[in-house]
Simulated assay, not measured.
Amino acid sequence: MAFRTILSFIVPLVCCSAVLAEEIRLNPSHPDRYTVVEGDTLWDISGKFLKNPGQWPLLWSYNSQIKNPHLIYPGDTVYFSMVNGQPRLSFSPTETAAVSPSSGPCVLNEADIQNGRTSFALSPEGKLQPCIRESATAKAVQLIPAGAIQKFLSLPRVLGENELNQAPYIVDIAGEHLIAGNGDKVYVRAIERPDSLTYAVYREGDILRNPTTQEVLGHEAKYIADLTLQEPGDPATLTITQAKGEIRAGDRVLPIGEEEVMLNYFPVPPEESIKGSIIGVLDGVTQIGRYNVVVIDKGISDGLKTGHELDIYQRGKVASDPYSPVKNDTVQMPDEYAGKLMVFRPFNRVSYALVMQAQRNIHVLDKVQTPE
C-alpha cells in the first residue's frame, strides 16, 4: 500500500509567554513517583499527574532533564515535586546491573556509551576483555496505541456528492465467480492511464449530516478491499491482495495515493471556538468508550487540524416534571462533561477523532467543543 504513516508523536517543547502563563491543573491524587509499565501510553502517564493530560508538554517544558518525553521506556521512573511553587519532574531510566571491572562478562549498554565509560572487565592476566554491546529491545511508550487508529488513517474515506459514483467500477470477476476474494482477478472499467499501482474497493456508506440542520456534510465510502493493478485498459485487470468483505460487480475502485500522515502532535486545543456533535462511530461499535473512533461534524473548513483536542459533553436529557403546576411541563437537564477526543484525520467538513478519555457513557449526538 502506498499510503505511509509516521506515528512518532514528538512532543513540541516550544515555550512562549502565553504557554507559560497557562495554569497547570494537577491531578489531586497524583503520585510522587511512577514507574512506567508495559502497555502505558504518554496519555496514561500524564493523566496520573495532571487533571488535563493535554497539558503534558507544559510540564515537560519546565524540566531540562527530560530531553524528549517520547523516549520513555517501560521500567523508567518519573518523579514529581514542587520547586518554588512550580511543578517539576525528574527522570530515572531503568537501572542496569553494574559489571565488575575484574569479573563476569563485559556488557556495554547505551548509558555506558553516552556517559563515556572508562572501566572495563579484565582477564586474570590483566588483559582487557572483549565487551558485548547491549541495545534496548523495549519500545518507547507511545502517545496512544498505534493500532487504535492505524486502519482508519487511510480507509475509509469521506467523499463529495457523486464522487464515488463517478469512480471506475468492477464490471466482472475472472473465473466466472459471483463473489471475489483474496488472490482473485477482477476487471475494472476505464483505468487506461493509471495514477497508481495500488487501488482500493469501496461501497457506498452512510450520508453524514449536520444533526441540527440535516445539511449533508459528506458521503462515507466503506472500504472493502485492496487491489494491485496488473494491466491497464478498459477493462483493466487488477488482483485482490487483501479483502475485508465480499467483492461484487458494481463495486467502485479508487487509487491509493502516495500520501503521508504525520501524527507528530500532542493534543492541543484549537485556536478557534469549535462547537459540534458526534455524528457517527466507526468499526461497528455501539457503546462508545476510550480509544473508539468517532465522526464529528466539524472539519478543516471549521479550523480543525490533526492533533486538536475537544471536550465531549453528554447531552442533557429532557425530563418531565410531575410536580410543576404547568401541565406536562419538562425540564432540560444540563450537559455533563464526558471525556476528551483527539482529531487525527480531518476532512473538509467532518473529522475522524479518537476518544482519549471517557468518564461516562458517550453517545452519538453528544456535543464536542473547544476546552475551556
Rank of each mutant, 00 (worst) to 15 (best):
256 I>Y: 04
273 S>R: 14
166 Q>G: 04
130 P>M: 09
252 R>S: 13
324 S>E: 01
191 I>L: 14
218 G>I: 10
135 S>F: 15
328 N>M: 00
204 E>M: 05
367 K>N: 00
180 A>P: 03
153 L>N: 07
272 E>C: 10
158 V>S: 12
164 L>C: 13
13 L>I: 13
211 P>N: 01
160 G>I: 09
92 S>V: 13
216 V>L: 06
288 I>L: 04
85 G>N: 04
89 L>Q: 08
227 L>Y: 03
104 G>W: 05
187 Y>I: 12
24 I>S: 09
232 P>T: 03
187 Y>H: 13
112 D>F: 07
120 F>E: 14
346 P>K: 12
338 A>E: 02
63 N>E: 09
269 P>Q: 06
325 P>F: 02
338 A>V: 07
238 L>E: 00
328 N>K: 00
122 L>G: 06
235 P>R: 08
128 L>P: 08
53 P>F: 03
3 F>K: 11
342 M>S: 15
363 H>L: 14
265 Y>C: 04
188 V>D: 03
265 Y>I: 00
101 P>Y: 05
282 L>H: 03
338 A>L: 04
58 L>R: 05
156 P>Q: 13
331 V>M: 05
96 T>Y: 11
60 W>P: 01
30 H>E: 12
85 G>Q: 04
342 M>F: 15
215 E>F: 08
13 L>W: 11
46 S>F: 13
59 L>E: 08
80 F>N: 02
266 F>W: 08
345 R>S: 06
148 A>S: 11
351 S>E: 03
225 A>Y: 07
109 N>A: 07
236 A>C: 00
344 F>Y: 14
161 E>R: 12
147 G>H: 13
107 V>F: 06
110 E>C: 04
145 P>S: 13
311 D>T: 10
321 D>R: 15
309 E>F: 11
348 N>S: 12
264 N>L: 01
200 A>C: 10
73 Y>G: 07
88 R>M: 12
207 I>H: 15
310 L>P: 11
366 D>N: 00
291 Y>K: 02
126 G>Y: 08
206 D>A: 15
89 L>A: 03
96 T>K: 10
138 A>L: 15
271 E>V: 15
289 G>T: 02
323 Y>W: 04
24 I>V: 11
143 L>Q: 11
72 I>N: 11
61 S>P: 03
80 F>K: 05
